[in-house]
């Protein structure tokens, strides 16, 4: 139904008469009414909802759950304890897989399967502890530099640059000589030299949030500097820092394996995938599959942590979010 009214004869041409749509076709809505039907959602709960729908997250979460369970309670997954005295019998050297020994034996006559299971713990400890430490230390330094600016920023940024210039692996080798290393001390050393990238990201993130109008509004309300920093700036600036830290987690596991492979990481008494990869080299021509087991476990662990980091980034990065 169209009702057109002819007006101003000469100026109206075909297709340009005064047209008015019937009102019932597009009923008027109240101006700017609030839709009260949908459930309220915070940014974090929305990110969580996005995560749960991401198949990459589900796969990586299941894998990580398995890896963490193995690291925490290896005895549930293997009847043999490779740390027990007499676990390795030279008579079993390069023995074939047999019942109870699915992956066979290595050169020393140790059961490979139980070593792969027990090797998960140091990797997971180094990865998780380093990530947490780097997140806290780097996040704190970066946030302070970004928030205070001026000479505090200048000093902290130069310190960051100095640490940035030290190659992480070299520093870990040199400083590692000074201590009796275990998974925790190695993680501490990695934190000490690995926080710089996080600090830079945290600084930038804090600076971009600081200029928001809600910070000015909060200042005008009389909120103090520290109230502002911890109540408004940190919650808004934390997402990119979390994402970077999670993506880096895999890298720290690789670092631990690299150091152990080189023989400068965890002591030989500790079972570690890196050391086992190194040991398997000697039999590379006769028993190449021995190299495969520890490196396969390492690869799956790292891949699942990196996938988790990616999934978290997709959920937290507002730029990829469609509304």
């Amino acid at each position: 139904m169209t009702h057109a009214s002819e007006t101003g004869g000469a100026t109206t041409r075909r297709g340009q008469t005064h047209f008015v749509a019937p009102v019932d076709e597009t009923p008027l809505q109240a101006v700017d009414a609030l839709n009260t039907d949908v459930k309220p959602r915070s940014l974090w709960s929305q990110a969580w909802r996005d995560l749960r729908r991401n198949p990459m997250f589900i796969i990586s979460a299941v894998l990580i759950a398995v890896v963490v369970a193995v690291a925490a309670l290896p005895q549930l997954f293997s009847d043999l304890d490779p740390y027990a005295p007499g676990a390795c019998q030279l008579s079993n050297s390069y023995g074939d897989p047999s019942p109870g020994h699915p992956f066979g034996f290595d050169q020393q006559g140790c059961d490979v399967y139980s070593r792969v299971i027990y090797g998960a713990r140091p990797s997971v400890i180094v990865g998780v502890v380093t990530t947490l430490g780097v997140f806290l230390l780097g996040g704190l330094i970066g946030a302070l530099a970004g928030w205070f600016g001026g000479w505090i920023d200048a000093i902290l940024s130069r310190v960051t640059d100095v640490f940035f210039a030290i190659p992480l692996i070299l520093a870990a080798i040199v400083v590692g000589q000074l201590f009796a290393l275990n998974a925790l001390t190695l993680a501490m050393i990695l934190v000490l030299f690995g926080w710089t990238a996080i600090a830079r990201i945290a600084r930038g993130s804090v600076m971009s949030v600081m200029n928001s109008e809600f910070i000015t509004a909060s200042k005008a309300l009389g909120a103090s500097s520290s109230q502002n920093l911890f109540r408004h700036v940190v919650p808004n600036a934390v997402a990119p820092v979390i994402v970077t830290a999670m993506v880096n987690l895999g890298m720290y596991i690789v670092l631990e394996a690299t150091l152990s492979f080189l023989g400068v990481g965890l002591p030989e008494s500790t079972i570690s995938w890196g050391a086992d990869i190194s040991n398997a080299q000697t039999g590379l021509y006769t028993r190449p599959e021995l190299l495969f087991y520890p490196s396969g476990a390492l690869a799956i662990t790292i891949l699942s942590f990196i996938m988790l980091g990616d999934a978290v980034r997709d959920a937290l990065d507002p730029k990829t979010k469609k509304r």
């Binding site: 007006t7 101003g8 100026t11 109206t12 340009q16 008469t17 005064h18 047209f19 008015v20 749509a21 009102v23 076709e25 597009t26 008027l28 809505q29 101006v31």
Partner: peptide, 25 residues
């Protein structure tokens, strides 16, 4: 308005004599 043309016509006429409630608003 909301994806539909609710009113069209000569500029001055619409301004001075809007017919659709949305245009009036």
């Amino acid at each position: 308005y909301r994806g539909q043309v609710v009113e069209s016509g000569p500029a001055l006429e619409i301004l001075q004599n809007p017919q659709h409630p949305y245009t009036q608003r």
